[in-house]
Amino acid sequence: MSSPEVTSPAGRPDEIRAVPVRRPGRWIAAAIVLVIAAALIRSVIVSPGFQWGVVGEYLFDHRILAGLLVTIELTVIAMAIGIVLGVILAVMRLSPNPLLSRASWCYIFFFRGTPVLVQLLFWYNIAALYPKLSLGIPFGPAFVHPNANTLITAFRAGILGLGLNEGAYMAEIVRAGIISVDEGQADAAQSLGMTRVQTLRRIVLPQAMRVIIPPTGNETISMLKTTSLASVITVTELLYAAQLIYSVNFKPIPLLITVSIWYLVCTSVLYVGQHYLERYYGRGASRELAPTALSRWRAAVLSPKHDWS
């Protein structure tokens, strides 16, 4: 063989020290972006329309904070309904029972095929369709007859609309997660004497979580913002609380900025939560646990030299 020797017995060859290629294009592009960013930031600070003083005034206003609380409640409850419903629908969809599977398909078809805003309005006006609700045995005696108008408040209509709609989306996410788990896992679990339910709960779902968590995080973040649609049916969540204020003081811009700041704060918190959830369900997937955002940041700042280029 006559290939050049890479390592000589005498020792390591010298490290390569070459003159790097000049990249003028990068410098020009960076300069343009910087100029645009500077202009934007200046206009945000200088232009009086933003009224930062008013923003500061209302940021911790009790009406805004009360709206924020309602937004968080709506998000949490609707997502909880969505996730539970999604798991049930996904399992139904994959069930060998054709009726269950079709029923699940129909549910997903209707709730994914119509706008969530329409669904919200629908639930809000449910009393027009069923003035009297009753709870009892189907086609048999009923035990309670609540009045639809008093039972379905705006808040409850919001929860129903958002949660039932979310269930359809979560069903598809959970189904994708379950399908992604290797069939050998179910074989192994069943050969050990586990029932179908045990196999699903102990073996398949925990592994499906790795696939389910990231899109669910997206759904949660999306839900947080979609709750603002509930303002249309007079739920006093964050946006409607702000609208009520600016309909009196005629300062929509600073109040919308206030609202946006709170939405950003909430989505940031959700990002961090999602990161740790993914880390937890990723255990065993790779040889090492992924570093937490904090430890990565610490490593980047404290390490003597950057070698993550």
Partner: peptide
Amino acid sequence: ESEVARKRAEIGMVFQHFNLFPHM
């Protein structure tokens, strides 16, 4: 199903691709 499961529990099986539970 529960009876089938009980009988399977008395028979050990080892697979070509191990099929260990990766999250445990």
